[in-house]
Amino acid sequence: MKVLVTVKEVAEPEDDFQISGLEIDEKFLEYDLNEWDDYAVEEAVQLKEENDEVEEVVAVTIGPERSEETIRMALAKGADRAVRVWDDAFEAGEVLDPNAKARVLAAVAEEEDPDLIFTGVQADDDSIGGTGVALADELGFQWAAVVNAFEYDIDSGVANVHRELEGGVEEVTEVEAPAVFTIQTGINEPRYASLRGIRQAQSKEIAPKTLGDLGLDDSAIETPVGITDMYEPETEADTEYIEGSADEMAEGIAEILRKKGVAE
C-alpha cells in the first residue's frame, strides 16, 4: 500500500515588503513548507509507522529547484522519496486554477498508483483551498475536505474521518479508498526532523519531472484565470494608533480599558 502526500513550498512576505508588478519581489519573501502540508506528511508517516502494509510514503510537489530544500524537510520527517515537477511552462507565474494544478498532480498519482493521498487544506500563500478536491475529481477518487481526525481500516479500505465544520461542529464521514483527504492543522503533532532524519534525507531521491515526462504538454496548465493587479489592501478601519515606548503603549491601552469600563 502506498500513500502520496502533496507538499508545497510557500512564500511568506517579511513585515516590510514591496509589490512590484504582479508579485512581491523575491527579496522580501521567506520560504517554508506549507503549514497544512506539515500535518499531512505527519499523518502519512504515522500511518506507515503503525501499519506494516504501508510500504511507501511519497511526497510530490510542483516547484522550482529552489524548493528542494523545503521538500527535503518532508523526507527528513519520514517520507521515503519525492517527485518534483517543474517545467518552463510554470515560469509564467502561479497556476491559480486548482483544477489545472490537479491535472499535473494527477499525472504523478497515476504513475505512483497510491491508495491514499493527503494534501493540505490550503496553501498559506495563495490560499486557494481547492487543489485536494480537484485532484480527487481528476483521478475519480473519493475525498473528504478539512479533515481533523483520520482512522483507516486497511482490510475494508474505509476511512472514518471527521471534517471540521464551522463553529466547533465536526461531521463524521465514512469514505472509501482510493481517496484524497485534505488535512487540517491540529490533526496530529508534527514531529521535528531529527538529526538522523535530516542526514538520511540527504540520500533520499527527489525525482525531477517535466510535463513531458508525465505525458502532458503546456495545455495541461493553461487556464483562463490570471492575476491582473496586486496591491496592499486599503484599510477600512480608522485605527487609532497608540505610539511611543512600551510603557506609553501600556498606559494608552490601560486608559482605553478604563474608559470602556472593563478594567480598573
Binding site: G130, D137, A144, R163, E164
Partner: peptide, 20 residues
Amino acid sequence: VNGMDYAPAVAGKLDVPVVT
C-alpha cells in the same frame, strides 16, 4: 468548509474554471 468540499469537483466535472 462544505463549499470547499464540492466546488472544485463541480469545476472539474463541468470543465469550468473556478476562483476561490
